[in-house]
Design a protein around this nucleic acid. Structure first.
Length: 591
RNA sequence: GGAUCCGUAGCUCAGCUGGAUAGAGCAACAGAUUUCUAAUCUGUGGGUCGCAGGUUCGAAUCCUGCCGGGUUCACCA
């Protein structure tokens, strides 16, 4: 049983015995300015009991002292009861943690959840925004696994449509048979190159038409390039052989490029859906909705749903010409997901510019009586902005994912070489370390912020390896491993069970933080917030470093104490490893 | 304009199921290394928690209004 819940039930018992009140007990960590580990606030009881805060607090403390052996000492400041826990409590707690192989992991709950993330377009390479999306999705998947779920990680690839035809058309016009091999370009970058070429070409045409007297709007519609692209889309939908072949060829290049990036950044999927396969889905749902009177038809034949009662508006679900819109597809795809897998929840990791879309989607599902509707959740995350403002592909201010990762690895190498601690590493070992540090820094940087908030990506901060960063946490792990190696070389193993010795503040603080890990996992799972894990593991690493800097483990002469401290730091290093794994971050044994 | 999210130190962010004197990191300054990894640690300075009301023993946290910013409101995706 963990400290907090033991203490809570003891206080609850005290309240019942002393004052005959049944009250849910809430504890908080004692502020560092006061002596104590946990604080119980008695103010809420004052009115009810008609006693002074100090009397109530003292009575509870007395009760705990005489009836339990949890308390070493206590103090009462105003209405705050600060409790210092007995050494034995700390040792029992640490022993509990040491004994539990999967500390922090909740038992299987026999529920499955699908997490969709990444969802790239196949007309340009991944950028910084995709990285936040990928890291969030992957991390949330891991966190949900730790919370007992079976997780299906999926990717919905947007591989069709006007935007894809743009790069196809430009390639057809100006490509001269260029391939990834001939150009040395990664496939996704090659496709992206032609997407940019299209845009330039298109702009020139618009400008010429505007000069010729057309309005901007007309010019955009009538530019030959746009007309050609639209024709191409029609051909694609008709299954024109040549168009399909070109589409296949270019998409294959892009997929190869994406896969390379995914592998490098360490994310993966259990299932990939392609919009080229799903874009026609949803029309039968429109029929269903009409039949049940959930949808209605307007005079021109378009189909709508009225969501005013839900505080939304009317929403088109099928065009007058009978073709699908974005939400039609999503209706179909959502049904498909729940048909393909026996899942109770589905999560979409998608940027907050689509908040309204998902609100509407879920509302429709509810109106259609889908029993899974309540299990649908849009994990909405904020945009990543640069110091000069938003990223705009047209203005060339997009931070490319591959470039960024490469730069981070480069920086990690330079920084690590400077320290000169890994001179005996083989090239393979060193390269693996640089990659680990680079990705640790990047992932931590993007995950430590609350997902729903927009965040600023300042290149100078993001490549920092000091302070509240991924490498700081990795460093703490490596530092502990170093001590454990030294101990092992002297025949000392961190034992799996420790005996009671005098304990100092650094030690009890560390156990306190360790003990809190399961709470962090639970909170991160309930709120879909990897940042809760990031903040937790930073606290742990910080406490760990404070301990290491102030308590010299291997200098301790008392063998019992030494073994206790070894066990303590081992537990810290393992918890760091488990927690960072939930963020998709690896930790090295040396760095 | 409607909806929605956000506003905390010079900068980037925690804290938000109401609790003590609002915390970290970076940046600035001052220290610590014959000692297990200094990617570290210790300390100093730095705040009308956007503003104004309200709720109460108590508000950064809850409610209302206002100010400022983002996103969105397509027979685009």
């Amino acid at each position: 049983m963990n400290i907090e819940s033991s203490l809570k039930s003891a206080i609850k018992q005290a309240l019942s015995a002393l004052f005959q009140v049944e009250e849910e007990v809430v504890l908080q960590p004692t502020k560092s300015d006061f002596e104590g580990n946990y604080t119980y606030v008695v103010f809420p009881l004052v009115k009810q009991l008609r006693k002074s805060p100090a009397d109530i607090a003292n009575a509870i403390a007395d009760y705990l002292k005489t009836n339990t052996n949890y308390i070493k000492s206590y103090n009462v400041v105003q209405g705050f009861l600060n409790l210092v826990l007995a050494d034995e409590v700390w040792f029992n707690t640490l022993n509990g943690i040491l004994a539990e192989e999967s500390f922090g992991v909740l038992p299987k709950n026999n529920q499955s959840v699908m997490v969709e993330y990444s969802s790239p377009n196949t007309n340009k390479p991944l950028h910084l925004g995709h990285l936040r999306n990928n890291f969030l999705g992957f991390s949330v998947s891991r966190i949900l696994e730790a919370n007992g779920y079976d997780v299906v990680k999926t990717c919905l690839v947007n591989d069709r449509g006007v935007h894809i035809c743009k790069s196809m058309w430009a390639y057809q016009q100006f490509g001269n048979g260029e391939t990834p091999e001939s150009s040395g370009l990664k496939g996704d970058h090659l496709a992206g190159k032609y997407y940019v070429i299209f845009d330039k070409h298109y702009k020139v045409e618009i400008e010429a038409l505007v000069k010729g007297g057309l309005s901007e709007e007309e010019a955009k519609k009538n530019a030959p390039a746009m007309k050609a692209v639209q024709e191409m889309l029609i051909k694609w939908e008709q299954g024109d052989e040549e168009t399909i072949a070109l589409w296949r060829k270019m998409n294959d290049w892009v997929f190869a490029g994406f896969n390379e990036t995914y592998q490098k950044i360490g994310v993966s999927f259990d299932k990939t859906y392609y919009e080229s396969n799903t874009y026609l889905l949803g029309k039968d749902i429109v029929e269903e909705g009409l039949a049940y009177g959930v949808f209605f038809k307007k005079d021109n034949g378009s189909v709508w749903i009225d969501l005013k009662e839900e505080g939304l508006d009317e929403k088109l679900v099928l065009r007058a010409d009978g073709t699908s819109v974005y939400i039609t597809q999503d209706l179909g795809t959502t049904d498909l997901k729940f048909k393909d897998y026996n899942i109770s929840k589905a999560i979409w990791v998608v940027g907050n510019e689509q908040d309204y879309h998902f609100e509407v989607l879920f509302a429709i599902m509810k109106k259609l009586g889908r029993n899974y509707a309540d299990g649908c959740y849009h994990l909405s995350y904020g945009m990543v902005e640069l110091p000069q403002g938003k990223m705009k592909s047209r203005e060339g201010t997009v931070v490319d994912a591959d470039d960024l990762v490469a730069e981070m690895i480069e920086t990690a190498e330079v920084t690590t070489r400077e320290r000169g601690k890994i001179d005996d590493f083989t090239k393979e070992e060193a390269d693996a370390l640089f990659r680990m540090i680079a990705l640790g820094a990047l992932k931590y940087f993007l995950l430590k912020v609350d997902p729903k908030k927009k965040m600023l990506f300042n290149p100078a901060d993001s490549i920092s390896f000091e302070g509240n960063t991924g490498p700081f946490i990795q460093y703490t792990h490596a530092r502990i491993c170093s001590i454990l190696r030294k101990a092992a070389s002297q025949g000392l193993e961190a034992s799996s069970k420790v005996k009671v010795v005098d304990i100092n503040k650094y030690e009890s603080d560390l156990i306190f933080v360790l003990n809190d890990y399961p709470n962090a996992v639970k909170k991160a799972g309930e709120e879909y917030e990897p940042s809760a894990i990031a903040n937790y593991v930073y606290e742990l690493a910080k406490s760990g470093n404070q301990f290491l800097q102030n308590v010299y483990v291997m200098h301790e002469e008392d063998l019992g104490k030494k073994l206790f401290r070894l066990a303590l730091i081992k537990s810290v290093s393992e918890t760091i490893r488990k927690a960072t794994a939930l963020l998709g971050i690896e930790v090295p044994n040396r760095m």
